[in-house]
Design a binder for these strands. Structure first.
Lengths: 278, 278
DNA sequence: CTGCACTATGAATCGCTAA
DNA sequence: GTTAGCGATTCATAGTGCA
């Protein structure tokens, strides 16, 4: 039985596999990460070869499974690159392995659309989206859909009110949702598994110094919908700390690993900047 | 050596595997289809079981490979359903099998975002996107990206013109693209692999009578970008004929198979309606 | 202060050339 | 033969600086 040796709200300069071994079983509420992609960022991180990627990730995913609570969720953002005019398949193979070899439940795939980096390629268009895969350990996960409700269109509100006068027969009809949540939030529409978040040009921000940051809106969305206040969010590949910032903003505790000292520095600066601005 | 027994611009009431056998090697320029999804619409079509889906599709994909020209492309729209709170994996397995077992080149994945069918589910949101997978036989495929160019933003046009005054040193640098194509189309920006096409409410249209139609904009996009005028488009699962309509609209010949007489009737009505409206 | 011009850059990829 | 490096290409976005 491992013990929990690590304090919260810190980024540890370790390989994530070493770091994860220091965490207790079922001590984490939510995992959000974007690991290094295969064959990218040579020089920055040690580049993982495409055909070794799944085997490289499996021991990490095993540890993630161990430390996550049964009510927790694991979100992973990763996209295959193209090589010789074909998109690689390792991301699909990874998803299949996580379920079939390690027993993760594959809840859903999100598509995050953004403004693609321009480029003309032989036989295809620039890339304008990335998938985010949602895994869990059980069917009873924390889920607060109305925390990410979007304002309804005018017309839809009217229609909803019309409908609401003739009360529906069954209370809720929806698993895991209390009826009054629906009523209270009449003006909020539920989002879908499509997230449109244009990538910002981070030219003069601290964020820009890390080569592969996702926008803060991404972890924000998943933290709101799939965790409660005060819970613990883990990012095993912390990079410049976007997951930590989002956690701070939303009143969650957090924890992360990162091997590059310079990114830890950037992340701590960003966190300090956020704390000062409050 | 098979001979081509079938006339163009017709929907044949056959199982697509039987129909495909009547087509000559390399006689088709473009394939666009949305096959029946696994475990759906029982009663309408014979439902294909999730765990048998890949093996069911492989012989069809082999025939598609045989009839497609080396310069052709194959687009397949298919999305896994959810079962017991998990999204099934057979679509990823299919993509992997098409490449690794049958030798198809996997060019790219498109994401088609739409307005999701409302519904509240346990632990996940409504579905707001479907993938479309692009396969080919060679790296030398027909590709007309500017046929689907979207108007550039005002500001980008100005910038482009400024740049164009100081001509770049090398002619093109980009394979498969003639320089003047770029210049002539200065006011068009290339799209990405993200297509946003809200699904129309087809409640009162002929289209609605088929349970699983994709919007005509979808085949339109692929026909424009990946085929030339006068070429032959095949849809092995024609349904209510959306691929045929799009082909007619764009001056392509077409051909399709469909086992249900009532959908062939609907498709022919739609085609007649289109012809009359011209 | 506003408007416009200009610049930097974002998980990119390909073909060519030199080694 | 193979590989590594370099230049060229593409545009949405945000920030800077000047008129």
């Amino acid at each position: 039985m491992k013990i929990k040796e690590l304090k919260l709200n810190e980024i540890y300069k370790m390989d994530c596999l070493d770091g994860l071994k220091k965490l207790k079983n079922e001590s984490i509420d939510l995992i959000i990460t974007s690991p290094p992609y295969a064959d990218r960022r040579e020089g920055e991180y040690k580049s993982i070869k495409t055909n070794e990627y799944v085997n490289w990730f499996i021991p990490i995913a095993e540890e993630l499974y161990r430390v996550l609570k049964p009510s927790g969720s694991f979100f992973i953002n990763i996209k295959s690159h193209c090589s010789k005019g074909e998109r690689e398949l390792y991301v699909y193979e990874l998803v299949i392995a996580l379920k079939k070899k390690l027993g993760w439940r594959f809840v859903d795939e999100f598509t995050w659309t953004k403004n693609g980096v321009p480029g003309r390629f032989k036989g295809r268009f620039k890339n304008g989206f990335e998938p985010i895969f949602h895994f869990a350990k059980s069917s009873e996960i924390i889920f607060n859909p109305y925390a990410v409700g979007v304002p309804m269109k005018e017309e839809s509100i009217k229609r909803a009110n019309r409908k609401a006068t003739g009360l529906t027969k069954n209370g809720s009809g929806f698993a895991g949702m209390r009826r009054n949540e629906t009523m209270v939030n009449r003006s909020l529409a539920l989002p879908s598994n499509h997230l449109h978040i244009p990538q910002k040009s981070n030219q003069y921000t601290l964020q820009s110094k890390h080569p592969a940051v996702f926008p803060v809106e991404l972890p924000e969305f998943f933290i709101k919908a799939f965790s409660d206040e005060g819970q613990v969010v883990l990012d095993p590949f912390m990079g410049s700390g976007t997951t930590a910032i989002a956690s701070e903003m939303l009143g969650r505790k957090w924890l992360g690993f990162e091997t590059e000292a310079k990114y830890i520095e950037i992340a701590n600066e960003r966190l300090k900047g956020y704390a000062d601005s409050k």
